[in-house]
Design a protein around this nucleic acid. Structure first.
Lengths: 92, 92
DNA sequence: TTGACATGCAACCATTTAGTTGCCTATAAT
DNA sequence: ATTATAGGCAACTAAATGGTTGCATGTCAA
């Protein structure tokens, strides 16, 4: 796959989205609901559920998050592939 | 030094700024004037001189560019330090 | 079947930001 | 000294973006 670097960098530019990736990095997979609870409770983020969903769609657009509807829930994964070689040419 | 990751990610989020870093990566140092010429001629970028200067100040704010007035010119350097460990925790 | 729950969609708002123009300063060259 | 050149500063504009609210959809459980 050929990742859109611009989309990846733009997705990483927001601290809430980076926090989401931090959370996803800890688990193999996670429910959107579970993620939302974590952000709101554990991190005391003051943001609406829809706000989180929008961030997630940006991450998905960049290929950094994969997701799949599983019954009532949406299961999400952290796809680290777009991060490989992201800084290539600048640092080894 | 302790780099502000948020500033670094935000600085990298713009394609023109990444192009500036690409140019700086090729030379040890460069004049702001020289950089401007390169962007406008070599890359046929349609942006004003002041536009470039603003991008450069963003990069400088993030610590990715160091600069120093040398007579008539402003000499600029690519400081790669803030890029080290930038993706730490996500990729090795 | 009906209600509760997790998610999706769309319009809207406020702020940020990339870009501009206009003018001012500083150094170099003639 | 004067002029050309390289750069700095500030106000303004349009578009992108982070955030919201309101409502619709889909799935599970009683």
């Amino acid at each position: 796959m050929n990742w859109d670097k611009d989309a990846v960098f733009k997705a990483l530019a927001d601290s809430t989205r980076r926090l989401i990736l931090d959370e996803l990095a800890e688990c193999e997979e996670m429910t959107l609901y579970e993620l939302t609870v974590r952000l709101l409770m554990k991190h005391e983020l003051s943001i609406s559920r829809q706000g989180i969903a929008k961030h997630l769609s940006v991450l998905e657009g960049a290929g950094l998050v994969l997701s799949q509807r599983k019954g009532k829930y949406r299961v999400i994964f952290f796809n680290k592939e777009p991060l490989k070689d992201l800084l290539k040419g600048w640092v080894e």
